[in-house]
């Protein structure tokens, strides 16, 4: 009996044994650290390089830290292309585009869940299928349409074709379906119409879901590339990702890396900051499909 109990432990590791500690480090921390560094180091390198003097970049003797950190690369980028204007354009397109998209998504999702209508299933299917239609294949017909309407190099030409939102509608519909019916019934007894039910009940209790949709929309509007690239050719109307393309030498021989890294920081940093602050919402919004199937 006693021999059995003393024999049992060696099968299992004691939690604080050296062996267990070693295994945790080798199997847990090292892969984790490796993955984190693989993501983190290129971004760190970008930041550091953007602060370096040209002589520290165009050299085969790499130094890790800039000797004299300065913003000269940013100034150079801004004097080569209208960088402030690109930034402003990106902000305008992102703010206006995401605001309208979120409002449209809230209205459509509310209608799909709470308003009686005969062909709701068909319409929902229409939206669901639109979710799977890649925006890239519609670029040419939309270009012809928008160009015909005089929308090249205009804000509305950049924003309009992306406004219809299948993703936000789908996500909010799924959330609205989980709201307890008792909330709505009590409002109906009080005689509230759809407008009041939407703004006084549904929207206030759905703030986290709407925030998720808003954040995911902001991120994708900010990063949007192929459409603004096609619809603008005047520097004054370009968004940041499109404007960055202007900085790249098309022959691919000698690039001004300091300037390009400064540009990359400007386009990546705002999203990194938003992501760092609100990553929970963004991750859950972007991986929603995997949970809902």
């Amino acid at each position: 009996m006693s021999t059995e109990t003393t024999e049992a432990p060696p099968n299992r590791d004691r939690p604080f044994s050296w062996q267990n500690l070693g295994r945790t480090i080798a199997g847990g921390y090292i892969p984790l650290l490796l993955a984190t560094l693989v993501v983190f180091l290129p971004l760190l390198w970008m930041m550091l390089s953007s602060l370096k003097a040209p002589g520290e970049i165009v050299t085969t003797n790499l130094t890790l830290l800039p000797k004299d950190p300065n913003l000269q690369n940013y100034a150079d980028a801004a004097s080569t292309v209208p960088f402030a204007r690109f930034f402003l354009n990106s902000v305008i397109v992102t703010v206006v585009g995401s605001t309208i998209k979120c409002i449209l998504a809230v209205f459509t999702a509310y209608a799909l869940v709470f308003v009686r209508f005969p062909f709701k299933r068909v319409i929902f299917l229409l939206i669901l299928v639109a979710l799977m239609v890649p925006p890239q294949v519609s670029v040419l017909p939309n270009y012809v349409l928008i160009a015909g309407m005089g929308g090249l190099n205009t804000y509305w030409g950049i924003i309009l074709p992306g406004l219809g939102t299948a993703f936000g509608t789908f996500l909010l519909r799924q959330h609205f379906l989980t709201l307890p019916p008792a909330i709505m019934e009590s409002a109906e007894i009080d005689g509230a119409g759809h407008w009041r039910k939407l703004w006084k009940i549904v929207v206030p209790v759905s703030v986290p879901s709407i925030a998720t949709v808003a954040l995911v929309t902001i991120v994708s509007e900010w990063n949007e590339y192929i459409w603004p690239l096609i619809v603008t050719d005047h520097p004054d109307m370009m968004t940041l990702p499109v404007g960055l393309t202007q900085l790249v030498n098309s022959d691919g021989s000698t690039q001004n890396w300091g300037m390009l890294m400064a540009g990359a920081v400007i386009v990546l940093l705002p999203i990194l900051v938003i992501f760092a602050a609100l990553q929970r919402y963004i991750v859950s919004g972007l991986t929603q499909g995997s949970v809902t199937g």
């Binding site: 085969t60 990063n223 390009l260 540009g263 386009v267 999203i271």
Partner: peptide, 29 residues
């Protein structure tokens, strides 16, 4: 923290990411 860091590139602009890596892959510098 590691989960957030690993996920981060997914939300970044492909243009910005492409430029950063183009610099890393540069055959001279």
């Amino acid at each position: 923290f590691a989960r957030a860091v690993v996920f981060a590139p997914y939300v970044l602009s492909g243009v910005g990411v492409g430029l950063v890596w183009l610099f890393i892959f540069d055959p001279t510098y």
